[in-house]
Design a protein around this nucleic acid. Sequence first.
RNA 1: GCGCCCGUAGCUCAAUAGGAUAGAGCAUCGGAUUUCUAAUCCGAGGGCUGUGGGUUCGACUCCCACCGGGCGCGCCA
Length: 548
Amino acid sequence: MEGIELIRDMIKEKIKKVLEDLGKDYEFKVEIPPENFGDFSSNVAMVGAKHFRRPPREIAMDLIENLKGDEFESIEIAGPGFINFRVSKSLLQKVVRKVLEEKERFGKRDVGKGTRVQFEYASANPTGPLTVAHGRQIVIGDTLVKLYKELGFDVKNEVYLNDAGRQISLLAYSLWVRYNELFGVKNEIPEDGYKGEYLINVAKKLKDEVGDKYKGKWNDEIEEFFKRYAVNEMLNWMKSTFERMGSKFDRYFSEKSLVEDGTVNKIIEYFRRKDLVYEKDGALWFKVSEFIDEDDKVLVRKDGTPTYFMTDIAYHYNKRMRGFEKVYDIWGSDHHGHIPRMKAAMKALGFPDDFLTVVLHQFVTLKKGGKKLRMSTRAGRFITLDELLEEVGRDAARYFFARIDPSKPLDFDIDLAVKQSSDNPVYYVQYAHARISSLFRQAREKKINFIEGENLDLLGDEYERSVMKQLDLFEDILLEAAQYYSPAKLTSYLEELAHVFHIFYTHDTILDNSNFEMSNARLNLSKAVQVVIKKGLNLLGVSAPEKM
RNA sequence: GCGCCCGUAGCUCAAUAGGAUAGAGCAUCGGAUUUCUAAUCCGAGGGCUGUGGGUUCGACUCCCACCGGGCGCGCCA
């Protein structure tokens, strides 16, 4: 039941031991080299040149003498001093066994040791439909949440609703205008109001519920009602979009509640005691400059309302009080200016430096008919996430969002996504999964018995080897994708795994009536691939079909 | 003007904490199926990794300058 270590780690350990025997200890790497250089390779001899004060190739020769063993079919020196390892079949076969034994648990580790962390993403103004930019954020967030769970963290995810502030007043008034239109009462939606058609539908629903109760009437109380009604409608809409995306949040957190429950005032009091705020021009300012080389920022406006900065500090205070040891915020790159002052605020509250990590992603631009579309919620003209899902489907949309590293801008060509959706690499990966399902259906038909875990010792030709090596990488990739906050590492991996499988499938006959043992061995290997692909797609929130 | 991010094949992107001959897919051209799904596989062409310097055994990767694009520099969020 004890799983083996990654082969790479095993090699590294062995080398380390040999170095210790020679009285040396320094950093070096074991990696997967380009083709034709063996299975694994190390730069240990090259890095060691300064430590041994001898030429790399000479060092390599000594090391190789001490490394020889059953695990390796061959160890060779190449190029300027690389040591290339070709590992034994039996070592690779153990990976297959491990995958089959652990199934969907394969890849789980306990690096997190139950550390309580939180991911906040897809946070939005509840003033309109979610955009494709939110879609990108949802996929990045969802995937990281699942990855961190795999790695043994206690993870929660949360959406922050900016349900306070001026934009909500504008939303309420815009809805009121639409509502009155239904009675023939004409009013103008302000320039910076919400002119999208969706508010007409909300207005109709409201009219069905309350009739002409608010026709032509407007006061503070009515404004409150319209705010509550509109925000609730927008929130329900958001939830339905999340559901369409296959996304689920543990909690929706209201910005407004931070004012109402006194958290904001509590923070202000604390800052006052610490002499970190001052009054100027009727507003309350936070001494950002006390912590970093940036200008001070307003916390409370002249009119007494808190700024976004203020409530966000309160929100993060709240997170900390709830017991999260680390929080990750996923923001669009247009928020990057917000990072230093938030960090300063965290410091002011006495939180550890690494309490808050911000994961930034570049924006999504849309292209349609060769033209770039600029999205604007207020103007009411944009492609919504709902529309995108309608056109390309959940799997393709999610995979596409995951596929580009968050640090790169994502250029979403809608025409291409619609027209050539079958070219989307998600199908390439899914197809490998479906193909394997089909293999097992065929095996039953051909009366080829599948015995899990048997005949693995027959695996070892070059196609099988490359599949086994790729399987061995999976655990490492999960860690890497989590560390770099990059689901794209996972999609690249899956495409490569699908690729080596397709090659294996093309060149080796898997179901062979004249050789049941070999058939069973290859079915086992296929099964292992299927388990890993399914798991990988699962982490991305993409389905793994049995048939295509 | 200042700050952050990005620049790799015609297009969309890789390149595993500085490593070997910079790789895939799409597109183009040419092949592969009487047998497990051809949504696949094999092959060909296509590159001064934006430009110029620097660091070292070695640079797409690190440093400096510049060019080009995105974003930010609110009592907006």
